[in-house]
Design a binder for these strands. Structure first.
Length: 150
DNA sequence: GCCAACGTTGGC
DNA sequence: GCCAACGTTGGC
């Protein structure tokens, strides 16, 4: 089983939205590196749900993969996520289906993550890491859930 | 809202 | 295939 971190702006989709919806297709990712990570997700993988661009930036809870990546339907629809190069035979973008697992009682703030020596090497700490889907080491994942989120 | 960092596009 | 211009992300 692998571990990941996914970013979302809570104004557009938050951990509370996922809790309400129970599950959602993780549509709209338009970055090749992030896409490749989405495609390598397997059912059962766990994800840190990260809130970006907000007053309390950090990990807000946990989600899990319940369905591997399929063609992202939003690439065929007129709108922000439309992809003119995509065909049904050759989709360009893919999205897995994620399910709600839990919301932390308090957000594990980016500041805490940056300051904790146990989390050295986490990609989200890297200066200028804009990647919205990132792999996370198992130890880092467990430490955030079992120590910092308590 | 600013702006640094980074990704993408397209002319050559 | 280089690289300038442009667009986007996301912390602050």
């Amino acid at each position: 089983m692998k571990h990941w971190l996914i970013k979302s702006e809570p104004g557009s989709y938050s951990i509370d939205d996922l809790k309400r919806d129970k599950r959602t297709g993780w549509e709209g990712v338009r970055n090749y590196q992030a896409r490749n990570f989405l495609q390598s997700m397997e059912v059962g993988d766990l994800l840190l749900f990260y809130h970006s661009n907000t007053s309390e930036t950090g990990v807000a809870g946990i989600a899990k993969v319940v369905r591997v990546a399929e063609p992202d339907p939003s690439q065929y629809k007129k709108g922000d996520y439309f992809e003119p190069r995509a065909t049904v035979e050759k989709p360009v973008w893919f999205c897995p289906t994620l399910a709600y697992v839990q919301k932390f009682r308090h957000i594990v703030l980016l500041d805490e993550i940056k300051l904790d020596p146990k989390l050295e090497g986490m990609l989200v700490r890297a200066r200028g890491s804009r990647l919205s889907v990132q792999p996370v080491g198992e130890k880092h994942f467990a430490y955030i859930c079992n120590v910092l989120a308590r």
